[in-house]
Design a binder for these strands. Structure first.
Lengths: 222, 222
DNA sequence: CGATAGTTTGAAACCACTCAATAATGGTGG
DNA sequence: CCACCATTATTGAGTGGTTTCAAACTATCG
């Protein structure tokens, strides 16, 4: 089974994630849009970090490998997110597409010459940093069940309203690398959440959140 | 004992952390600089996030509390860093000074009207995000000794060259909350690193890094 | 229908946590 | 300057959650 999509049963208001000047649909046809097929790498740890990328569609996984083979998925970028950040001119993580994706490259000097673009990217960076803060709380202080609940919660919130859920297909091994858990622990945590009636997992890896409020509670942060 | 300062014995080249238009020394006298005495809170989780802050001197700790009392220090901001990020207009963490500090407030609308300022902040955000990525690797995939080694390594690198080390006084409990460990585990990890000859701890909580290369190895990421 | 990738479950080992008690430190007031 | 107090650090013993190792089981795809 493959945790492909997320189907959120509970309805709730979600703020529009994208408020770009140009709708993704159109920009995906822009000349500088790059297609990244599932499994392909957009860049690799050690590569020169020439530009940033804004994700138009799909989902990309940013991960880092420790010399002994341990892997940590540092972030997952979906439509509207930026990736390709670097502090020393060199990528510290590898970026691999979880699903067929499209990204547009942003030249770094364009950020300085175009204040509007710069502001937009700054806003995205600020939100990204906040999301990373939340992940740090998850990784630092939460148990396995709470981490998985938190993960699903974020998916549910990102999936938003009636929109067809479009979250990346992640295997439990990848979820484990994202949450700092072994794949077996991820599996067991799913079982327990299922047993508690918080989620249902259907064929094809679809996960349905049954009770958003109780899932939020299970995630630990109130 | 109190891990106040870090004395780096090994000398190595460190890139200048600050390359601001105006040197911190002068700006600390600017009219809008705010002094934050040790222990004081700059803002609290739930507060409205009106502005950003740039740290001029000292050190501030950003932490979040879970309803059951668990605490995670999300980040520590020192001179040159920004804090006060929010994605929904409300602070999600509390910001408390680890040492007497000075910060300057940055109005959010000033970021848009002043492209130079915007660029500078964007650069800081990008570097901050990269640092958070590294922390996620630490929290997700490293054992206690590796986390503490990684922590000390970063201090050593930030302390830089001959400069008097100016890192915040953190108790082992705070270090634990920063690294997602219990204070006892932090203490034991220090003991083990000491035993392996990687660091020495002297009176007043000063930590001396004996062998930067071996410490880096002990930190796990090559 | 076989092969491969992914999931599920079990058993044992390990690491970090909690509880608990003691030692060291630093600050304060006499 | 010293005694006292509160805070912090240190160390031990026992527990529990997660990992590891191992073995089915299931889905998917050619």
């Amino acid at each position: 089974m493959d945790f492909t999509d997320l189907v959120v049963e509970t309805r709730f208001a979600a703020p529009p994630l994208l408020r770009d000047d140009e709708p993704p649909a159109r920009s995906e046809r822009r000349p500088d849009a790059v297609r990244v097929p599932r499994g392909a790498e957009l860049f690799r740890a050690g590569d020169l970090a020439r530009r940033l990328y804004e994700v138009r569609s799909g989902a990309l996984m940013l991960y880092r490998l420790l010399p002994d083979g341990r892997r940590q998925v540092v972030d997952v970028a979906t439509a509207g997110d930026v990736c390709g950040l670097a502090s020393a001119g060199v990528h510290e993580s590898t970026c691999e597409a979880l699903a067929d994706s499209a990204v547009v490259a942003i030249e770094r000097r364009a950020l300085e010459s175009d204040p509007r673009l710069g502001d937009r990217v700054r806003g995205k960076l600020e939100r990204a940093a906040c999301a990373l803060h939340a992940r740090i709380v998850d990784l630092g202080r939460k148990g396995a069940d709470e981490r998985v609940a938190s993960f699903l919660l974020r998916l549910a919130e990102a999936a938003g309203d009636g929109d067809a859920a479009t979250f990346p297909a992640m295997t439990q091994a990848q979820i484990g690398d994202y949450l700092g858990l072994s794949l077996e622990t991820v599996c067991r945590a799913f079982s327990r959440l299922r047993g508690r009636g918080l989620v249902e997992t259907a064929r094809g890896g679809r996960v349905r959140v049954c009770d958003l409020a109780r899932l939020r509670e299970a995630a630990g942060d109130a």
